[in-house]
Structure formats: C-alpha cells, structure tokens
Design a binder for these strands. Structure first.
Lengths: 222, 222
DNA sequence: ACCTGAACACCGTTCAAGT
DNA sequence: ACCTGAACACCGTTCAAGT
C-alpha cells in the first residue's frame, strides 16, 4: 500500500497516542511506516507541517455544533465539553495546539463557529472579543495543570510526602487535600483537572459572560 | 572568574531573553560562557535542571505580597499583575513554566502565598481549591494567546489578508477588528494579549470568586 | 512520481582523562 | 575540585541518485 498524507498523519497520531509526543520523531515515524525518513518529506513539508496535520486530524473529531435553536450557553458548553472529550483521548494534543505558530484551517473553523454562537446569542462584537480571550485555552476543553500530581505510589509514602511538603508550604497541602477526590483521605489523587474542576471554571466563565451581556457591557477604558 | 551555578543560570536567562528559548542549548550556553559544554554539568545536573533554575531565577523577581491589611482582591490582583510584568520581560518564561514536570521551590512559594491570600480573605478550603484551578496559568499573569497575530507587514497587505480570511471565517475577522487597538482601523495589531484583555479576564474571575464566596459556595455534586 | 543513501549540521549526555 | 576531548546515540533536513 502506497504512502500518502493521510497514512502519515494517522500513523503520527497513533504513535503520539501510544508512546507520547516525545517519541514522535521523523525517524521513528518513518520506521513505524516501514520507510526511510526522507520518504515522509514527499507528503509533509517538514515536522511543523506534520504537527499541523495532526491537529487538524483530531480537531475533526470534535462534534459539530448543535443546529437546533438552543440557547447560546448550553450550545457553547456542549461544544467545549465535546472538545474536551477529544483531547482526553489524545493527551499530547493540548500542548501541540498551544505550540502551533499559525492556526490551521480546522482550528479556524472551530474558533469561527464558537464566535458565531455568542453572536447568535446577541453578544456585541467587543464583548465577544473579550469573551474569546477570556476563554483562552479553555475553549479546547483543557486547563493548564498547575498542581502536578505526584506519581501515585503507596498511600503511606504519599502521606509522608504530604507531611514534608506541609512543613514549608502548608497552604498548598491544605488545598490539595481539600480537593482530593478520595473519600475523606489525605492523598492527592492523580490529576486534579477532572471533570468537576473543569466544569466549575467553565460555568464560572459562562455565567460571567452572561451577566456582562445582560448588563450591556461596553469597553470603558478606551 | 570561576564558573558557578549562578553565573550559568543568569547566562542562560540572558541567552533566552536575547535569542529566544530555541537558541538555548547546552552547547550554545557553554560557548557564551567561553567553556566546553561538559563544564556546565558540574553546576547543573542536566538541561531540565537548568530550566528549573531559570524559572526560579525569574520567579524571584516577582514583588513580594503586600503585607498591610488590604483586602484579598486588590492584594491578589496586584501580585498577579506583578508576575505579569516579570513574564513580559522574559517572553520565554510562560512556556517554560508550563513545561516543568515538577514545580520548583520558588514556584511552590508563590502558589502557597497566593492561596494564603484567599484563605486570609475568609475563603473556605474547597472554594479556594476550585479558585486556584480556575485561575490556572492566569496566576502567572499570562493568557495563552489563541489568535496568533500575523506578522505586521504593510497595512495594505494586512487588509488584503483580512479580506481573504473573512471569506471563510467571517466571525473571526469581525472579532479581530472589533478588538483591534488602532484608531478605527481594520488592522489587527500585533498581539492581543495586552493589559486590557488580561485585566478584563482577571477581574471577571476575581468578581466571580467574590460572588461565590459571599454566597457561601459549597461543592454540591459530591 | 515516489523512494533511497549518504551526508551535514546540529542535539544532550557518557566516560576516561587531564590539571 | 573543576574542566577537557573524544565519543555515542540521537535529531531534522539537504542533495543527488536511483526506479
């Protein structure tokens, strides 16, 4: 079977899914496809374009927008949560999306349609501009993880580690345990950017947008 | 003058400031210091630890928290805007902070003190947990830029590019021009993540936190 | 039109050796 | 204790050549 752009892109996505984005080199990818590295360059100009193509491939997996006449808020909410589901299947994707120098057509389609939802909801152009900036990377359904969770070792070791941390950073330990999704335990679970955290932040933003919209927000400082 | 950890770290920061983070290789850095690459490994275990040290160095530039008995909101606001000023001086820093596998002590200090401000303001532990997650990378004073601004060429070319974009992504062009900080012009300025956008988002978040706090928010779904 | 082989200019990092 | 030289196992990408 002949090599073509689609085969290259899908092999790249599979390789990144399975072995992580660091394992994705032109040389590894070529080997996976049973081909010499230079063969790839007939279908993809360079590595940057390969990454662009991978982003396009997975953005295509996001559900299309709801077409019925639903309110902007549930429509936006559902679309973003659908994007989130896709990104959860491809853990490397958030980082790659952020790293792209110029957006791909599929990315522009997604952004364009999201903007369209706010405008259809009656949002003014300036407010929609601010809203899109405020959403930021959350429009893709992910949040930058800022409490990197320690590798899950045995509970005893984790508790000991927490105690040590607490000596110097007491508030961090308080907060970590306050949010631990274990039944009353002290252990910080693996990864806090879960559905609850994400939806909390998303709803806080959407409610804020709603409020500003109803109050007829207009930029005052210019 | 002998090489030491501080000299290595500060040379690395200067190199990244001047030539971009991509130009920072162990080999380039060694050359900058007039030394053979392997000499660096006596002061820094590997490149990851070099990057950690660089983050520590610039986090130290953030103003200390206000110690007077000000309200949590202006205190948090001022601290985050101070972090933003630091990151603006080191454009590579946001990306490097996000990429660290485990946080450095200076990073933990910063997070810990920010949490302390909310707690001092009377926030409950669970709410503070959610609040910190919602802040996300915005606690460092930056927003992931999602409308990469085209390189500033001549206005005519920019207008033509906008017209082409508008054919397929009309909403994006509408929004871009609605936010352009030029006097009524059509050109998207270079970089939209400016002070106005950032403070808008920050204040929307802080106001949302304030509201939830006053309403006595408690996690309902667990 | 598509793939190959050999080469170039880079990486981070090791090891054994020098002073 | 600190720095060096040579080497290893990688990168992305070029060029000229093969089929």
């Amino acid at each position: 079977m002949a090599l073509n752009r689609d085969r290259v892109l899908h092999a790249a996505v599979a390789l990144a899914d399975d072995n992580g984005i660091d394992a994705l080199s032109m040389r590894n990818l070529a080997q996976e496809l049973g081909v010499v590295p230079m063969a790839l360059y007939k279908h993809v100009a360079n590595k940057e374009q390969l990454l662009d193509g991978m982003v396009d491939a997975i953005v295509a997996e996001i559900d299309p927008p709801a077409t019925d006449g639903t309110d902007w808020k549930p429509a936006v909410r559902q679309r973003i949560l659908s994007a989130r589901k896709v990104l959860l299947r491809h853990p490397w994707a958030s980082r790659v999306i952020e790293s792209r120098a110029t957006p791909t057509p599929a990315v522009l389609d997604y952004i364009n349609s999201l903007i369209g939802m706010f405008l259809a909801g009656g949002f003014s152009l300036p407010l929609t501009h601010q809203v899109m900036h405020t959403l930021g990377s959350r429009m893709w359904g992910f949040t930058q993880e800022l409490f990197p969770s320690p590798p899950v070792t045995d509970p005893e070791a984790a508790a000991a580690a927490m105690a040590m941390l607490g000596a110097r950073w007491p508030h961090i330990v308080q907060i970590a345990t306050a949010g631990a999704h274990t039944e009353g335990g002290l252990i910080v679970g693996g990864g806090c950017d879960d559905q609850f955290e994400f939806e909390f932040a998303l709803d806080l933003l959407l409610d804020g947008f709603d409020r500003l919209h109803r109050e007829g927000w207009a930029a005052t400082s210019r």
